[in-house]
Design a protein around this nucleic acid. Structure first.
Length: 385
RNA sequence: GGACGGGUGGGUGAGUGGCUAAAACCAGCAGACUGUAAAUCUGCCGCUCCUUGCGGGCUACGGAGGUUCGAAUCCUCCCCCGUCCA
């Protein structure tokens, strides 16, 4: 299977129903991608991910490069084989670590010098190095190395990062092209010859820069485009505004991916911007911190009111956790610091995000996305459980 | 019967004259978490009053007295607990 994207339906809101084909399977879009930074979606086995219907998940260049090392993963046949995951994988480039490890790095036009968060050692990540690592990992979709900036960032700063991101995107694409043309066998370069590379729109919260960024990247002709640098502290309305502006500039026949979003109630908003893919650590991280997403809003399972509550976590959820366990039990596990708390909470939260995306797809198919969104968001926003 | 050691807020446990409503940790209560340096982080955690403030009052370091301007801290007696010796 080679990379292929097909828009099956576009509804009046701009939302798209689609189908993304990768070397490791077909992905129904709009899709939610659980984050598995270090070769694991924390708290969930690959078998569980499969049973939950996960079609694509994320891995991280920076983390896997540091540990266990991309050459080791290459030698073991690539990330799919290494982690025994038959589905699709998208790898982030390390660009987000430019943002999240701000205290541990130095940026130049060449690339970024990181001090490892594991042992303090220095490492240079460049666009070329990032692609080299992602080729070794053999993800189905690699991301260009980008500069993700903080919020707020003034026009000059956002512009600088946007230009650097465009230049780095060009270098990523050129590196991959040169590798392919080099005559070396594919296996020596990449554990996944069918890998595609997506570019990343930046530009901070400045509409003109978002448009300019998108146009620059479209000129470079990538098979898919991400919109990055969102959900970094700005109001949600600004976030969707930026996503919509960028999406307008992107080709209709290529997948659009908003990186790092979002809350369940925010997902329909991005979809209505014409976004096809999203990822977020919220379901797994919050699960480990006792914050559970339900059809009636967020539940902090630590709260004393659940101590004797025999009801399932979410009466409208049909996941294994909600079919099997009570709130009282989930609270007990969390309070007792039991490993199973993280496992069950993660299972439910990921199931809830996937289920939400499934409902969104169904609503698009039925032409009812607007109605679904307002009902869904009102119910979740009520926060009653 | 004797010799030591010890009794501190829900727990463990610092503190040996004022900066102490009393460290720290745990437990408890609540909040946060958006391309994962996160099974993490933050706040509260004696009672009470109000014009909610680096605010007032009360109670508190086994018990009762005492010394002192001032005591969880020093003295006396008593009550418990532990170890050892008879």
């Amino acid at each position: 299977m080679n990379f292929h994207f097909e828009v099956l339906k576009t509804d009046p809101t701009g939302a798209r129903l689609g189908r993304l084909t990768t070397p490791h399977g077909v992905i129904d879009t709009p899709a939610f991608m659980p984050v598995g930074t270090a070769g694991t979606v924390k708290g969930l086995t690959q078998q569980a991910l499969g049973e939950l219907g996960v079609q694509i998940l994320l891995g991280n260049t920076y983390h896997l490069y540091l540990r266990p090392g991309h050459e080791r993963i290459r030698a073991l046949g690539g990330l799919h084989k290494f982690m025994s995951w038959p589905g699709a994988i998208l790898t982030d480039s390390g660009g987000f670590q430019v943002f999240s490890l701000a205290d541990l790095r130095k940026i130049s036009d060449d690339g970024v010098v990181f001090r490892s968060h594991l042992d303090g050692s220095e490492h240079l990540l460049t666009p070329e190095k990032s692609i080299e690592i992602q080729q070794a990992l053999g993800s189905d979709i690699a991301m260009v190395f980008d500069e993700c900036i903080e919020y707020p960032a003034d026009h000059a700063r956002a512009s600088g990062a946007m230009k650097r991101t465009a230049e780095w995107a060009r270098r990523c694409k050129e590196y991959a092209r040169a590798q392919t043309a080099s005559g070396q066998t594919n296996a020596a370069l990449s554990t996944n010859p069918g890998q595609s590379i997506f570019a990343i729109v930046q530009g901070g919260m400045h509409a003109d820069l978002r448009r300019e960024s998108a146009r620059q990247l479209v000129d470079l002709n990538f098979p898919g485009y991400a919109i990055g640098g969102l959900a970094v502290g700005e109001p949600h309305a600004i976030s969707t505004e930026m996503a919509a502006i960028a999406a307008e500039e992107l080709p209709k026949d290529r997948p659009r991916y908003v990186m790092g979003v979002g809350l369940p109630e925010q997902l329909p908003d991005y979809v209505r911007c014409g976004v096809d893919m999203m990822d977020c650590v919220l379901p797994t991280r919050n699960a480990r911190n006792g914050c559970l997403f339900t059809s009636a809003g967020r539940v902090n399972i630590r709260n004393a009111i659940y101590a004797s509550d025999p009801r399932p976590l979410d009466e409208r959820c049909s996941c294994m956790v909600c079919r099997t366990y009570s709130r009282a039990y989930l609270r007990h596990l969390f309070q007792a610091n039991e490993i199973l708390a993280s496992i069950l909470n993660s299972h439910h939260n990921v199931a809830f995000f996937l289920d939400t995306m499934g409902k969104i797809r169904q609503a698009i198919a039925l032409g009812e996305l607007a109605a679904f969104s307002s009902e869904f968001q009102a119910r979740i926003g009520a926060g009653e459980s």
